[in-house]
């Protein structure tokens, strides 16, 4: 009997944690100041939130039906693989379109050329002389 009470508590904890993480991610996406800051909320917090909710669902159906199921784990795995890819492509799109950024997010990734981070294009040193 106490076994089920403990499991119910664990499922309830995962449900509330997942909802809270997803809400905090969306809150960050709404309230932060520029696109590169807003990218942080959904890509990390919302992903861990939906992971928690799917773990809660998997535990619930495991307890009620007596055997584990792989489908929820499949959705979790798929989301955890695709979220960084989406974030990378969105960040590249933002750099490509030269979106406005506030002063604090003006760091330069070393592997990008100067014109790819929104500065004026610089002539290649091999061209333009002679």
């Amino acid at each position: 009997m106490t076994h089920y009470v403990i499991l119910e508590g664990v499922i309830a904890f995962f449900l509330i944690a997942g909802g809270a993480f997803a809400f905090i991610g969306s809150l960050g996406m709404t309230h932060l100041r520029d696109f590169y800051m807003r990218l942080h909320g959904p890509t990390k917090s919302t992903t861990i939130g939906i992971g928690c909710i799917l773990i809660a669902s998997m535990l619930y159906f495991w307890v009620t039906e007596g055997k584990p199921d792989i489908q929820e784990l499949l959705i979790t795995l798929f989301l955890f693989i695709t979220a960084p890819v989406t974030a990378h492509l969105l960040a590249k799109t933002g750099l490509h379109l030269r979106l406005e950024h506030v002063e604090k997010t003006r760091g330069h990734p070393v592997e990008l050329r100067r014109e790819e981070v929104g500065e004026k294009p610089v002539p290649h040193p091999d061209k333009g002389h002679g």
């Binding site: 696109f35 807003r38 990218l39 992903t47 933002g94 379109l97």
Partner: peptide, 28 residues
Amino acid sequence: SLPDRLLALDTMYVNSIALIVLLGLWLN
């Protein structure tokens, strides 16, 4: 900007997955 709206749409997809999973829990 356009990437902002794209990011919002992507987050809506993820949140709607969470909503569907919760509906499955609700209807057992």
